[in-house]
Design a protein around this nucleic acid. Structure first.
Lengths: 214, 214
DNA sequence: TGTACATCAGTGAACGCGCGTTCACTGATGTAC
DNA sequence: TGTACATCAGTGAACGCGCGTTCACTGATGTAC
């Protein structure tokens, strides 16, 4: 009686028409990203889970990705691109180079707190990928760092920063600083940290003060 | 022919004598810790894996721990205690309070690089434990932070630090700073970071310079 | 305009795996009489 | 000094689960003649 009309998936998805098979690829990537962000747990991103979210059977994933690893890499790549855009957006239209650095720093922390699982994947993961693949995936991350270095160089050209150390050194200093704050805020609910906003403000101020021309 | 004499475990362990059952508890904790550090992978710490490492059957674990969660917590607790000892050891016998802070900072990074999996568990994990249990586990971590605060207070009492912000603020500044460096060094083999030692030296110097009385 | 056919976009069932955990048991060790 | 017995420190086999992945298939869609 009920045998013929039962469906295992809650969302049924119309089969794509001829030539539109590539659309599923996009939907898979979006679902994987969404699962990651919604559940806040990398383990929820299983092939089966993604398939269910898309409204498709698990083997259908393999029509577009040879294995899970490749799929995860593709997701990572998108995360990095998204992150780079987010940072560039925060820095846009700010003329004062020190203020731009401050805006970048605070946007960095904000991104991490708004998208903790993305942040984990990008900056707190175990880098188990083979180096070649890793470089491709992290390209947007390297780009984002490059943008920070350029911002430092603008500040330096304007005579606003001290001259000891290179621009890359200064950018690394800022990066490690905001990363420390971000990742502690994400991870250590165990420790009684004081007011979050005030902490971010203070840390960014100190980070810049250590670099500024006095 | 070979049926009767096959043994599934490579290491056979003599059964403890009456009243010495508690010894196994200790061995389990040590094996769990060792697996974590040797393999560098939290997933290798399965009940079955630990049992094999100890030379015992999986159910034997349950004679001492009600479930895996409790076992993992017990391991965490030891990590934190170990970490606190490591830091206190690094700070011992240093008279100059600024130099003590510097020694603490560099020891922190060193600990993280020497024991990356321990570090991950303590400071980079997803805090899924219930708050009550978490507080117990992290007690040694909170103690360690307290020791840092005290070191800051000594430096302040000696008139070596600026007076803006509290000692806890200053300790947090140092903590987020060294954590940022440590966790990036652990995680991001993807990014071409420059010379490690030089980076640590420079970051610690800048961290302190931001606090020092000028 | 009709029809045989290739192809595309999937499906359903099953595979072997390792996991945490449970259950009924066993055999050596110490103890009471 | 000998022996029945309780207890301690485990074992072996099995459970159900979710996982990534494979395989043989199906049925709608477009195309060639």
């Amino acid at each position: 009686m009920s045998r013929a009309h039962r469906h295992p998936r809650s969302t049924t998805r119309p089969r794509a028409r001829r030539g539109e098979g590539e659309r599923l690829r996009e939907e898979i990537l979006e679902a994987a990203e969404r699962l990651l962000i919604e559940t806040g747990n990398e383990d929820a991103v299983s092939i089966r889970g993604i398939a269910e979210a898309v409204g498709v059977s698990p083997p259908a994933i393999y029509l577009h990705f040879p294995d899970k690893e490749t799929l995860v890499f593709a997701v990572c790549e998108r995360q990095f691109e998204w992150f780079d855009l987010y940072m560039e957006d925060a820095a846009r239209d700010i003329d004062d180079p020190i203020e731009e650095l401050r805006a970048r720093g605070r946007a960095y922390v904000r991104f991490g707190l708004e998208h903790p699982e993305s942040y984990r994947i990008m900056f707190m993961g175990r880098s188990t990928m083979d180096p070649q693949r890793r470089d491709i995936v992290a390209k947007a991350g390297v780009d984002a760092f490059g943008h920070l270095v350029e911002a430092v160089e603008r500040a330096r050209a304007a005579g606003r920063l001290r001259d000891d150390g290179s621009s890359v050194d200064a950018a690394l200093w800022i990066w490690t600083g905001v990363h420390g704050l971000t990742s502690l805020l994400i991870s250590t609910a165990a420790f009684p940290l004081p007011d979050r906003d005030e902490l971010v403000r203070r840390n960014c101020a100190l980070l810049l003060r250590a670099l500024e021309q006095r």
